[in-house]
Each structure stands twice: as C-alpha cells, then as structure tokens.
Write a protein that binds this DNA or RNA. Structure first.
Lengths: 423, 423
DNA sequence: ACAGTTTCCCGTAAATGC
DNA sequence: TGCATTTACGGGAAACTG
C-alpha cells in the first residue's frame, strides 16, 4: 500500500534544538483516488514514549496538524510539509525526571510521529509512521555531541527506530569509521581526508597498535572519554577542526595546502631533508580548533631545526585571514630586521605560488589616514627548538556515501528533520 | 495618602526590548493598618492607550498580577516587585497598524500601569499609577535611538506622562545638553567630558556659529538627521564612541589619556610645536566607533609633518587591546627596520610612563611553540601626510546629575523599568 | 525597490539543576 | 561542590512589510 522514496535533506538533519524552528515533510506513497475530503496529518513528538525510557519530554509548540496536498512536483502523491515547528521541554512531568541515568542528552533518542486517518469504501484506515531517531539539544554547544550520535547510529544500525541504541552502543570498525570521518570533511569542508591523514587519526584513536588489521573503536572512545592527557574527546577535537576549516580555512583546505593531520614526529621526518624555509600546516593536537605551521631551518652549526608557531584559533583568524598570516608572518631575533621564515610549502612549492591567489588585497582606502594592518610576529630572544622523535605508517583508503541510504522510511516517506544546522 | 520616594534603578531604564525580561517594583507609600486581606496589584501595558495614538501595541506575556508584601527593608511599606515580565507585540490589531505615521519606533512612548483595589471600613478605594514614558524596541540595534529619546524627554520636560512628546519635541539649550552628554560619559565610561571636548562637540552639532551664546539644538539635529556628508546622526556617532570606550578603552579613557574629541585643525595646532614623536588619541569623525592616533614628526627638510593611522574599530581592538597597539605600532618605510613613531603622549608624557601599566603581558606559555602576537604595522612606500587648516575656541563647563530627580512618581512609587541594558 | 523594523538564531555567559 | 544542561540575550544577518 505504501513504499519508500529518496529523501532530500540539508546539512545536519536529525538534530533539533529547542526553541528553534525546524521543518519536516511527509509523503503518502500510494494514490488514493477516492478520498473526497481533506486528509489531515497530525504530528506528535515522542508519541508512544516507552515509559521512563527518556529523561526529558518535549512537545511541539506550534500547530501540529496540517492538510495534505497534491505535491507540486506532481507525481500525483499527496504530501504535507510542516514548517515552523518548534520543540519545548515539558517541565515537572511527575515531580522529577524519569531519567534513565547513564545517558547524556545527546545520547537520548527521540522520534516524531505522523498520523492520518481516512475512510475508503466504508473502510477506515489508520496511517502512522515515524522519523528516524532524533537528538534534541538546547544549545548549539551540544551540536557536536548530537552529531556524533547521529553518525554513530547511522553507521552501525539499519534499524529505523532503535531508541535505546545508546544504552549499549556497538563498536565500529576503523575501516567503516574512517570512511565516515572523511565523509564529514568532504561534506562540510569540500574535501575529504587522504590515507595519511586518516592514518594519523587512527593512531590517535587507537594508540600505536594500529598497523594493518581492522580495529574496533568504542562509542565511548570515539566521543565520550577524553583523549589521554587532554580535556576533550577525540570527536570534540576533530569537530573543532572541522568548524575551524568551515569558518576560516575553506579555500586553503580545498586547495589541499593543509596537511593538517600529521604527528609531530612525521612532520619532522618530512621536513628534515627539505630546503630551509620549507613549512607545512598542521592542526593543533593540544588545543581545540587550532592550526599552526612548522618550518625547517638550519642553525649556524648546520643542524636541522624545527620551529612551530603558537596555534592560531578562530579568534585570531577572524582578525586576520590565514593566508595573510602566512604572507606576513615575521620573526624578529634580538632586534634584527624581521624576516618571514616561510618560503616553501612542503614539499617545495614557493609560498606565493601556493597562496598568492588567496591573499587579501590590502585596502588603502581612506586617504588622510595611513593604512595599518595587523601582522603576526614572533620575537625570539633565545633559541626555541623542539625535540624530534620518530615515524609512522599509513592506513586504508576512504570512499564517500552510504549514509544517505539509511534515510529511507516505510509507510509515509519522511524527509528527515531539517533544522537549520547547515553551516 | 501617598507620597514619592527615591528610585533605585540600573543603567538604561525606560527601554524595553520585546522578548527580553524586565523588572519593575511598586511601593504603596501609605500604611494601611486595616487591610486584612492580600492586596493584589495588576500591571497592564498601555492601559488607556489614546486610540490610534500609538502605532504598535504590546502586551505582557507573563503573569501580570502579584500580591503586595511587607517590604524587606522594612519601613513598613507594602511593595511588590514584578520580575520576568516580558513584552510581545500584538499582531494585526484591526487589519493594519494605527500608525501615527511620522514617528519612528524609538520616538513612540508607552507606559506601564499598576492597579490595586481594596476596601477599608466599607470604603472601596482604587489605586492606580503608571510609569514614566517607555520606549519599546525589538533589537539592540535600536537601543541608541531609544536612549536618545529617554535623554531628550527627561532633559526637556517634567511631565511624568506626555506620551505625545515626540510629536513636537522642544529644542534643547546647548548648556543643558552638554551637561547631559558629559553625564553619559561619566555614567557609562567613568569619566565625563571636559570643556574642550564639549566645545568640539558643540561645534559639530551647531556648525561654526558657536562662540559664546547658548544655542539651541533641535531633536532632529541631535539624533535624527545625518551629520552633513556622513551616513549617521550626531548621537549615533557619539554613542558608537561611548560603546567603543565601554568595551575596549575603559582604562585608557579613565586615565584621561584620550583627548578624543578634537578637530583635526586643533590637533595640528596642538602638536605642531611639540617634540617629534608626540602623539594624541582622537575619535574618528568619519566612521562609527573608531579611534586613531596622530603623531608629529619633522621631515628631512625640517618641516612639520602629521600622520594619522587608519582608525581602529571594535573588530581590530578585540584582536588586540589598544594599549598594546600603542606599544607595538611600527612603521616600515621602504624596507628599513621598523620603528615605533609614538614617543610622547601629548603634551610630553613618555609613552611607556603613560601606558606601561596598561600593557598586556605577552604570554609565552605553551613551550613547544614559538609565541606569536599580532602587531599593528603601517608600510609606507611614498609620503602620506595631510593638509593642516586652523583652530577653535572652548566652551562652558559641565556638571553631573539632575536626571535622577525625574524618576519620582506620585501615588505608588515605581522603580523605573529595569531591563538588562547595563553593560 | 527599499528602508525601517522585526525575527531568527548562533555563540558566549550566566543561571540552574542534579 | 562540581559538572551537565538550560536559559538569557547581545549582535549580526535575514526576513518581513508596508
């Protein structure tokens, strides 16, 4: 009687923030020639919530009933789009929350139900369907955690409605997970991750054990427990970089000028035989959302020396675009004329050849004033070099896709939630 | 039966933003020994709005009835504080808005009424009072305009409820207005304006006619019409500077290191006989919320030369504190070693003596990295100097206060609206 | 088309809850 | 008390609306 179709959805579906509008669309996949009245569809949040299964309860603030209409892109289907839906938390359900205790809010899964009822030839037919599991957040600061849940769910199950998924979440194979991670970058930043980059991520996640086999990563390791010695989890760290790229590094990333995910050891191994002034761009592993450059030079005694600048974060980058930082960066050693130590992007691309097109032209507009820019500068009094260590090995390749396939639904076809979490 | 008391209120009262919580408090100024039941007070927005007089209508979203209580600071009075009040606009009152046409939203005055009713010895007594005129805005971008209205109203009338005030607003004497302007700076930035600064503002507002007499300024000239040749009004300009000071220049302003309001002509007259490297700080007249420095130097031929840097606005200043900009500013002329041209704060205070305490210490924290800061730099290829002109005269002094006196009310005593428009 | 005004909503900070 | 979560609202931008 009904059959699935393909979904069309925006950037980060399945995450709804309370108080922020979202949209959903339902299609009836069978033609009903004899329905002579308006077919009403009602949408309900967490309709048959398993009692006590969910610690927070929400309801739809705005009008939740609409009449189906012949679809514009007329394949003749009836469809209805709910717009301006908004979720609000129910307070004080029965004294205190029916908390399941162990799950964090971004692990708590919800769903949106749709119901319709009509009569054909004296036969009353009830239609009902529901969305894929949804994550409800109250602040954008929870978006990374929510997205981690959506990724993990869709990576590891085909079940369209396992709301208890995070009660005992399965592990992921690195081969699957790495594909998803690369896909995050190609989707949100326009370019995926290559073998070497994924290899570094795999080591970060698994320790040095990674070598050839396909290891398994726990949900906790992926996004809940902190990276040893750091105050953030693997996914929080990776997502902070994704955000940094989206907001401040898009052209540089897309030109493939950011090696990005390289261990310090690998970095030194790559640079050590290169021309002095050769540099590469690497994301900070110690701070969230930071990028640094490391260049190689030869000391007076002929020794190889590596220098890395303090990582630039979004605050600095919004004052000065990254390409301009590379162009203008200068080092002053004990009062000598400042010099830009960055000459060649690894392996050997002259800096201006790589970044020239990305520089901002300096506006010298208002005449009576002397134009002034900020330039990034490092002042050296004594030598500051670092200790090298060792090297690494590579890792399996990556391909895009598969996630979309999970967005299929029976009964009605539901366009998965489109809340405004595109960039 | 009732008498006024002093109000206690926050920074920018009498302005309410829709959807944002505000607080108000009412006191009953007579003791009612025989009231044996709870005295309810109801608050209503625009209770008896003159029909068609107001183009927008609002209502109070939350609970608007509360019971009076013996005041904590027990002088025995009954009082009640309404918290978490919130205003929302009524939509589609009767087709279209009852617009009065000519007034902008920040000129439209509203009021909050309070009512109570009780029976003493068989006598039913109705109490009613209302607030001073209120301005309702929907976005903080309207706050400067709203505050201009509040200032003008309180400066020019003692009427506690002339809601049609801006239908034909009176002019202000410069002597009164200048006092209010200085008071804005002392209230919001901790230091008022001196004679010379006010003199420059007077000229800006009145043209060169200002000399000795007390001129009148129209409401329109003050905050509605644009400064000739500029895309903003006098008050928008001045308020943008106030905001810049509050957010980025507070210590420098309070140390009186910012001359700020000086014409370019005066600036040159002051600097021309000074030691080369003498500089002063001046607010931009051409852009909103900008500050620049101008220094004097002698060209090779011995001529006096003035240079002004492109003004720094909040974006730049949030990347780099102003004191650090002064410390680190450098000029590179055709590749020569960069030099900081700023030596003495006018008239002759060595730069570091003035600003030393305000510099930020450069953090060199994370070891493996070379610390890097942004420094402001101007690169000169050819000469960029400007044309001098002429001089000016000073203006009357300033004193604080008076505004508070306007906040007195009859009947009940109302703490004027406290919406969160402090900094 | 446009300007004045409101709505939307991210992102930071503060408040709240557990 | 500390951490997790929500609320608050400034500020920039988009949407609205005459």
């Amino acid at each position: 009687e009904k059959q699935p179709c393909m979904p069309t959805h925006p950037q980060k579906p399945l995450i709804i923030k309370t108080g922020v509008q979202f949209t959903t669309k339902v299609r009836l996949l069978v033609k009903l020639p004899e329905v002579d009245y308006q077919l009403k569809v009602k949408t309900t949040f967490d309709k048959d919530l398993p009692p006590g299964r969910v610690s927070r309860q929400f309801f739809i603030l705005t009008n939740n009933t609409k009449v189906m209409d012949i679809e514009d892109y007329s394949n003749g289907c009836l469809s209805v789009e709910f717009r301006h839906l908004q979720l609000k938390e129910k307070k004080y359900i029965n004294g205190t929350k029916g908390n399941e205790g162990l799950l964090s809010v971004t692990e708590e899964l919800h769903s949106l139900s749709f119901e319709a009822c009509f009569t054909v030839q004296g036969l009353t037919i009830d239609l009902e369907t529901c969305s894929l599991p949804l994550v409800v957040i109250s602040n954008v600061s929870q978006l990374p955690g929510g997205w981690a849940s959506v990724m993990w769910y869709n990576l590891l199950t085909d079940d369209p409605r396992n709301l208890g998924f995070f009660g005992n979440p399965p592990r992921a194979n690195w081969s699957q997970l790495s594909e998803v991670l690369s896909w995050q970058f190609s989707t949100f930043a326009g370019r995926g991750l290559n073998k070497e980059q994924l290899s570094m991520l795999g080591e970060k996640l698994l320790g040095q054990h990674v070598s050839c086999g396909d290891f398994q990563i726990s949900w906790s390791r992926f996004s809940k427990e902190n990276i040893p010695g750091k105050p953030f989890s693997f996914w929080m760290w990776l997502d902070s970089i994704l955000e940094l790229i989206k907001k401040h590094l898009l052209p540089v990333w897309n030109e493939n000028y950011i090696m990005g995910f390289v261990s310090k050891e690998m970095e030194r191994a790559l640079l050590k035989d290169r021309e002095p002034g050769t540099f590469l761009l690497r994301f900070s592993e110690s701070h969230l959302g930071g990028i640094t450059f490391t260049w190689v030079e030869h000391s007076d005694s002929g020794e190889v020396k590596f220098n890395s600048v303090e990582p630039y974060t979004k605050n600095r980058l919004s004052a000065l675009p990254f390409a301009d930082i590379i162009r203008d960066y200068k080092v002053i050693s004990d009062g000598v004329v400042p010099e830009n130590p960055l000459k060649f992007l690894y392996p050997d691309i002259p800096k201006d050849e790589a970044f020239g097109r990305l520089y901002n032209s300096q506006p010298s507009k208002v005449h009576p004033y002397i134009p002034s820019t900020l330039i990034p500068i490092s002042e050296l009094r004594s030598n500051a070099s670092t200790t090298p260590t060792m090297c690494r090995s590579p890792e399996p390749p990556m391909t895009p896709g598969e996630f979309d396939m999970l967005n299929e639904q029976l009964c009605f076809d539901i366009d998965t939630m489109s809340s405004p979490y595109s960039e």
